[in-house]
Design a binder for these strands. Structure first.
Lengths: 228, 228
DNA sequence: CTTGATGCTTGATGTATATCAAGAACGATG
DNA sequence: CATCGTTCTTGATATACATCAAGCATCAAG
């Protein structure tokens, strides 16, 4: 476990805490800890009681759901700097709605929910940040549902690739996948085999080339028109 | 347009306003109005600037998304008493993420966003209620994504039916669909034809009987075991 | 009682994707 | 370098679902 001032430093980086007074920060720091997870370690599981929420300092965390049928679906891959499980704070049934597993060694800041709620009550600014955060997440989910329902697998993959591109103007682009293809496939609700095949046909059409986890898009426009 | 005290009455029914003082209520009422929509009328469209949010007093409103391919997907059918489009309040880009269309004649309470934000700033209680509301919605969405990804069409339909049942213990149950089968199908991301066929096979197996919009479930347990 | 509109059902056919199974590439480890 | 495990690819086959097209039911309007 890290020293107190380290924790405060991590807290300060957390957008949800950026409006707090030094006193409030110290209080929260006393009830927070930095956890170190090994690759494959489970941070929490679906339906477990949720007394904390988190911010990822380093590494990658996979959030997934297990269906009644037993299949797993990756909802999100948390990247460093992102908060997660904070929406649970206000649920009636205070349990985690997803599983969280470290995809690699991780450092995670864990904050006590009860303490935070107490402080939240005294900080309007923080309330507003949290509301903005949740509102953003809602928006993300609506888009997510779009992708999963309106389109076929090819389109979902193409859409995801296009979202990764920062420079929209250039005719070509390079994308480095942040996770394995299997996990990305699950996020897009595609089987690994199908995922592979789609990339193949796209490269056969000269739209992109694949080299391990880096994908070079040769014709952004062409890819954009490739809707179904 | 209704009289002021009618509006205040409607506001009081809105969960998000239940923590407000009479003064605050009056202020909001001055900046709210009751809208009357005809069947098929569009309340707002995707990407339109959102300066208000709503609560449905009577009728039904369909919230849907239009994909790039042109297909429509129903995200939700708003029922009387439900607030909607309130999550937009905190978005950076203040535009509606969905289309809203009246499925029948509707009465809608429309509240000015700017005024509400101002009041929110003065009412912690309201902040907390709003956060709880958004958190609830997030939870719903996670479940929604489950349904759309983890299962096949039959399972999605069965799952939806089971959710409608209140009395979990009884062996049989009656369900009255609140919308047309077409719209329900779209919500579950199933084509109308497939929807029809699934109901047929389920009734052939003696699990339920269909009579217009009322569905009589004869074997709740059996239906529950019918995963995929 | 017609007529037409609308929502629902049914059948025939096609296609996207899942599944099963095996092999290839790659990185880690001794 | 050899070996093992993992991730990815590829092929053959199966199937769920979409699509197209037509028929039926219900209900309101003439």
């Amino acid at each position: 476990m890290k020293k107190r001032h380290d924790i405060e430093g991590e807290l300060r980086k957390h957008i949800l805490f950026s409006a707090l007074t030094p006193d409030q920060l110290t209080l929260i720091a006393r009830h927070s800890r930095i956890l170190h997870l090994a690759e494959g370690e489970i941070l929490f599981q679906q339906e477990q009681p949720a007394e904390r929420f988190f911010r990822l300092c380093s590494g990658q965390i996979k959030l997934s759901r297990l269906s009644m049928g037993g299949t797993e679906h990756v909802i999100e891959v948390v990247q460093p700097g992102q908060p997660f499980a904070e929406a649970v704070l206000f649920m009636k049934k205070r349990v985690f709605p997803v599983n969280a597993e470290a995809l690699m060694p991780c450092e995670v800041l864990a904050v006590d929910s009860a303490i935070f709620l107490q402080i939240l009550y005294d900080s309007r600014e923080t309330c507003f940040r949290l509301m903005a955060d949740m509102s953003y997440r809602l928006h993300i989910f609506v888009n997510e549902i779009d992708n999963l329902t309106l389109q076929n697998a090819t389109f979902r993959l193409v859409h995801h690739l296009l979202q990764q591109i920062v420079d929209c103007k250039s005719r070509t682009a390079d994308i480095e996948l942040v996770t394995s293809k299997q996990i990305l496939a699950s996020r897009l609700s595609i089987k690994p085999e199908t995922f592979s095949r789609i990339l193949k046909t796209l490269s056969q059409r000269g739209l992109l080339t694949v080299n391990g986890r880096t994908i070079h898009i040769q014709d952004v426009q062409g890819l954009r028109c490739f809707g179904s």
